[in-house]
Amino acid sequence: MAPSRRTLHEILVTTPSFVWLSVLFCVPTLIVFAMTFKPADMYGGLGPGWTLETLRHLANPNYPAIIWRTIWLSAAATLISLVLSIPMAYYIARATPGLRNALLLLTIVPFWTNFLIRIFAWKILLHPEGFLKRALVAAGIIAPDTSLLYNPEAVLVVMVYTYLPFAILPIYAAAEKFDFHLLEAAMDLGASRLTAFRKVFLPGIRRGILTAFLMVFIPSLGSYVIPDVVGGPNSEMIGNKIAQRVFVDRNLPHASGLSAFLTLAVLVPLAVVWVVQKRTSGQPPTMQEVA
């Protein structure tokens, strides 16, 4: 009796989230995919029948540049976030409990303020007559007519700022479980500090890094507000194009086509991570691996 009761329990526990996900996530996603194959009418609605017209329009010569910009900005934001958050997570995990809690709190504090307000705060920080600009000009680092705002670099900076906590937290969670004695053992066996960090610590927190990668890369791909507020005329990302197709062009099939493309683009890194994790699942670094 015991196993079947356990199964029943599992079903009962998973049903709410399963229903939630299928009704509010899977079904809408499938509707978006289906709308790609409907014709658009002049009034912003959907026409009768089915068509491949939208797929042909997706071969728009202007898209590769936007797609490329979306990918490089997201990849750069992810890379910078990871590089910054790994030492931070290492430090937090090794700190005394009191300091650790304070640092974790500081990581989360920005979330107490609304996302939009924090992005608008960047506009004040990078204002062309603001303190930062004047300080940089006075220090001779930038020319007086250099704009700190409204370019892809500004978008990148704000993206890193926004998503950094999402990278720190999973890496910290992994680092906290890491047995730091392994580092000492590695150094006893002749590894340098850097080698020990690279060959023992990094593989040990691999799962945390993969999670952080997903937590930063996927929302970055879908960025819309950040390029809209701090981006300039040459900082448009796929998210902005989808918004334009819906609100300006009133072409739902076209917007759906782009959204479907984005969904597929998000599934690729997910699949890669899944395969990597599957291959190495449940194998914490052993002494043999280090040696």
């Binding site: 506009k123 204002h127 062309p128 007559e129 704009s147 705002l149 507020v229 981006g231 300039g232 005329p233």
Partner: peptide, 21 residues
């Protein structure tokens, strides 16, 4: 013209011109 402008903006231009941005 696009080479000379900061951005295409339909809302924030009001605050922007007021603040000297």
């Amino acid at each position: 013209w696009k080479k000379n402008i900061a951005k295409l903006e339909s809302e924030q231009y009001k605050n922007g011109i007021a603040s000297g941005e």
